[in-house]
Nucleic acid binder design. Structure first.
Lengths: 212, 212, 212, 212
DNA sequence: AATGAATGAGGATTCATTCAT
DNA sequence: AATGAATGAATCCTCATTCAT
């Protein structure tokens, strides 16, 4: 491959990156409809027609944003479990929550866009929304697994329940954080969240115990 | 005076209503940007130019939607306290949560729009967003008051904390509900929320106790 | 006539005045097209529909503005001749020019609108334009008369010529004044104009003399 | 490569031209506000959205019209001085005036638009107006230079004065011409203008002489 | 691998005007 | 003598997308 060839090739990937980055930022600020191709073009420094060379259409661009952001999210979360090995369940959970909070702040654009999409209810569903909900499901599933190993006394239904509550709480705290822009102690609230999860887990154990 | 004649003139308020209703529905489905005046015109049965007789511009229209929806929300919530008199704190809370859950489902359009707006981060903030955040604050304040009378042992800070967590949980569960469209037992989860709040309150009391 | 009746009647005329004043100002600032009924409504403090009670349509409103403004202009000019009696021709002319300059500044809105209309070339001529051109013609005719009595040696053609040049110069100086907003000594230039007219008159006399 | 194919792509500049030409004509007939994008689109044969590819907005379009027209005007005027070499001052001036008159008639659209803009007084000044006034200033400056070499006895102030009067007269005669559409001998009046300038110059010399 | 130019559809908003009261 | 409400047509401009190069 010639020097020029490699260059050109590299540019291809790099330009794709620039477009994705711009699109993620903008979509995280203004939602799907608010993300105009013209704005992405401006922010990425590439002409609008170049965006269409890399992505079929706006729908595909934003789907790619979700996919790519979710991959990053997973990377950010994967390290957690390894990092958290060899401690008491409660300690592990606390560490997990702390790192989750950080991952959320790192992926704030992604989450904002995803939640905006989640809240939409249009007849013609967007690919990006579908993908975000799948990503959400995947996260939910993983969280259930984690809880299963963390709270061996809990049954599958209990763990699912706990995971749902955890995600709800995380989403809700994120929204509170966005509502009061820096007026809230996001990380602190996540510590409380960890405590609440442990309490809820015990509650579930206790209530489930007799039935088992 | 002909029937049609009387219509023509007196309908100022009624047409305003129609426009607001259409706008609320649409905005609750598609967000601020997705709410085109043409769509509102179509759904309300009035020409676009008539919308501009009643509202200065799109911003004012959606601000009015938020204001009006919040007034309805408050109406729906006001009955609660009266209804809940003369029971144990836990019972009162459970009743409150159940009715809150119902109020949320009744105001789903409002909440969806409001949360979408909350998640936006555009330089030129929308009036509707500002109003929703104010409404949110007002609700938060009222919730703190309720908690103060419900958990007399808790201090102001604790109540504020509890209120924040409650709102976060409610928002989070609403999102989970929207994500899994009917795949979730929304009301059931709110029962769990009541229990969690009581548990958290006890936890706060316990941890705060020694300091007092 | 009842008190209320008189009041109402007076209001009628007064409101008409307000509308005309607002329209004259706005049209003098923004031209015919730039004068929207909504703006006139706002500036006059009366609803748009009231404007249509007093004037058939926009065309009639602006025609009325021209008519009314020209009447004022004539009033402002009429005094001049009287005032200027019993002096040498040159002195009379100088006085005339000075007062004309003042009249122009007093009717600046009128002149600006009129000249903008004069410069338009649209297929569907505006009534206001026609009226302004008539007013212009009338002024031209009067100026010729004045010159006939001021320069008895000049023939009709010469006076017409002189009047045309005078008007051109006045218009041109007005434009120069508008172009350099207060950066020009409008009144001073009119003194020069008077001198130029006298010079031109002598020139015409001299060149016409032999032929007569 | 098909004929149509080549057209499609290479026509950037040509289409820009068509748009500018259409805009100049229309704006010269109806002024800034009267120049609707739809009209320009129709007259240029290009869709409205294409106009926005070539020009940021209406303001930029009309600014470009002024810029471009002024460039043409300068071209038309540049030849004059060369052409007029080697004659008496009076002859040079007469030739200059005659050619100026022709240039004015050639740039009538430009002048009409420019003068209409000059007469406007809106809070949000149009770019086109600013540019026209700059062009006017530039012309004024050049005229002063010409007069300095033509009337060496006159001082700077006198030349400036003379240039101001000349421009005023030219503008005024143009307006008279527009007012009486072909009812006036425009070129003939410019001969008179030349004579008047010479007379005024002599007058200035004479009055300035004693002071020197 | 990219892009300048173009374009139809639709965006929000303002327009002059009407009409029932 | 006036006006609140309404409205169809037009306003400027942005949209996502295409296509020839």
């Amino acid at each position: 491959m010639s020097e020029a060839g490699r260059r050109r090739h590299k540019d291809g990937a790099e330009n794709r990156r620039r477009i994705l980055d711009a699109a993620r930022q903008i979509a995280g600020e203004r939602g799907y409809e608010g993300t105009s191709i013209a704005l992405v073009s401006e922010r990425s420094g590439l002409p609008a027609s170049s965006i269409y060379w890399h992505f079929k259409d706006k729908d595909a661009l934003l789907a790619a944003v979700i996919e790519e952001s979710f991959a990053r999210w997973l990377e950010g979360m994967e390290g957690e479990l390894t990092l958290a090995g060899g401690q008491s369940g409660q300690e592990v959970l606390a560490a997990l929550m702390r790192r989750t909070a950080k991952a959320i702040l790192d992926s704030a654009d992604f989450l904002r866009l995803g939640l905006m999409l989640t809240l939409e209810r249009r007849p013609d569903e967007r690919t990006a929304r579908t993908l975000f909900l799948q990503a959400r499901d995947e996260t939910h599933r993983r969280m259930i697994e984690t809880y299963r190993s963390l709270f061996p006394e809990l049954d599958a239904e209990g763990c699912r329940h706990l995971a749902t509550l955890t995600m709800a709480m995380a989403d809700g705290l994120f929204i509170a954080y966005e509502a009061s822009r820096d007026g809230i102690d996001f990380l602190g609230h996540f510590d409380a969240l960890a405590a609440a999860v442990v309490a809820a887990a015990r509650h579930l154990e206790a209530s489930a115990g007799p039935h088992a």
